[in-house]
Computed example of a mutant assay.
Amino acid sequence: MKKIFSILLCSLLIFTIVGCGSSAKKYTAEEYGNKLKDAGVAIENLEVTTNDNDKNQLLGRPNQYTSKVTFTNGSIEVFANKEDATNRKEYIDNIGKKMPLVAEYNYVNGVALLRLDKKLNPDDAKKYEDAFMKIK
């Protein structure tokens, strides 16, 4: 009887843990770009990054983006987890603090990082941020 009870208890625990996992859909960078476009922000000249055209050579590397797109005003990078996205944002922000000429707007939403050109005025950058943060 103890054995059956233990098995049932373990099964319940496993189902509880699995049920607590993230229910948010994971999008590719291209899907994020299309969602921003659908929200009415300017996403022009969208280009999907591949191993052949990845200037940073980070696509698929450990702790780096799993997909990326570039567009006229910036890029979107998607990571395997939020920690990697946040670490990438902090890394880029630190470079911008040390070299203001390369500073940019950066926003993390879950596993995605939106990077915008600093040439955008703050009001336009806010429009991108608002639309990006609504993607769930």
Rank of each mutant, 00 (worst) to 15 (best):
F5K: 12
N73L: 05
L13V: 13
F132P: 01
L8Q: 03
I4D: 07
V41W: 08
I14N: 08
T72F: 12
K37P: 00
T66F: 05
V41D: 02
G21D: 04
K89P: 00
I7C: 13
K126G: 00
K26V: 10
L120M: 06
A29C: 04
I17R: 05
I95L: 14
K82I: 06
E129P: 00
N34L: 09
T49D: 02
N63D: 15
G60V: 03
E77N: 10
S11I: 14
A103V: 02
K136S: 10
N73H: 13
M133N: 09
L58M: 14
N51L: 14
T16V: 13
C20P: 00
N94Q: 14
K55G: 03
Q57N: 15
I14S: 06
I95K: 12
K35L: 14
I76A: 06
G33I: 03
A131Y: 05
T49G: 02
K126S: 02
E129R: 11
K2C: 02
T86I: 14
V48Y: 06
M1Q: 10
D117T: 12
A80M: 11
N121F: 09
T50A: 08
L116D: 01
Q57R: 13
F15G: 01
Y32E: 01
L120N: 04
K118E: 03
T86Y: 13
D38Y: 07
G19A: 14
M99T: 05
G74Y: 07
N53M: 03
K26L: 11
L8S: 09
E47R: 08
N94P: 01
A112D: 03
A131H: 04
C20H: 14
K118D: 05
K126E: 13
A80W: 05
I7Y: 12
T66R: 08
N53H: 06
K82R: 15
F71I: 07
S67W: 08
A103Q: 11
D124C: 01
N51D: 09
T70D: 11
N34H: 12
D124I: 11
K2L: 14
Y65G: 00
N51T: 06
L116I: 03
D38W: 04
T70P: 00
F15H: 09
V18I: 15
V78Y: 08
L114G: 01
R88W: 09
N56Q: 13
V69Y: 07
K68E: 12
F5W: 11
E47V: 14
A112E: 04
K2P: 00
V41A: 03
E47N: 09
A39N: 02
Q57L: 06
N45G: 10
D84F: 15
A29S: 11
G19T: 12
D130M: 02
